[in-house]
């Protein structure tokens, strides 16, 4: 058997319609050989955790440009844990002010990226984080 294919859920929690970044990242991950489950806009934390469970993903990727990340992220982390998916790595991108980063990292979020982030960098760090 070849090595395990990395499965990533790319979701947009919250109510904003900025989906360009999520799509750009989804495509970059596909081009890097990963399987990306794209769930689209307006996902609740419950929907995201449920999809992560059913899809048995290695990574959950959140794209948030609405400013609601400090409300959404903790709930998603909590639900993943409650479902027994502590091992899932969470990555995040969008408009995230620097001052929020330490608290997000402390919640267990592995990588955070803002406008202009290089997709090669994102691919590399997801590969790194999912190495078993």
């Amino acid at each position: 058997m070849s090595e395990h294919t990395i499965r990533v859920l790319v979701a947009k929690p919250g109510l904003d319609g900025h989906d360009r970044g999520a799509k750009v990242v989804a495509r970059a991950l596909r081009d890097a050989g990963m399987e990306v489950i794209y769930t689209g806009l307006r996902q609740t934390p419950e929907m995201i955790a449920e999809a992560a469970l059913q899809e048995d993903v290695d990574v959950v990727g959140l794209s948030i440009l609405s400013g609601a990340h400090m409300a959404l992220a903790p709930r998603i982390m909590e639900l993943l844990k409650a479902n027994g998916q502590d091992q899932v790595k969470v990555f995040m991108g969008g408009i995230i002010p620097d001052e929020d980063m330490p608290r997000l990292k402390a919640m267990g979020i592995t990588g955070i990226y803002g406008p202009g982030a290089s997709t090669e960098e994102i691919v590399k760090e997801i590969r790194e984080a999912t190495k078993s």
């Binding site: 991950l29 596909r30 081009d31 050989g33 399987e35 990306v36 489950i37 794209y38 689209g40």
Partner: peptide, 10 residues
């Protein structure tokens, strides 16, 4: 690339 974007859940 062997990768895929699986979009049916949308």
């Amino acid at each position: 690339t062997g990768g895929a974007v699986l979009g049916d859940r949308v």
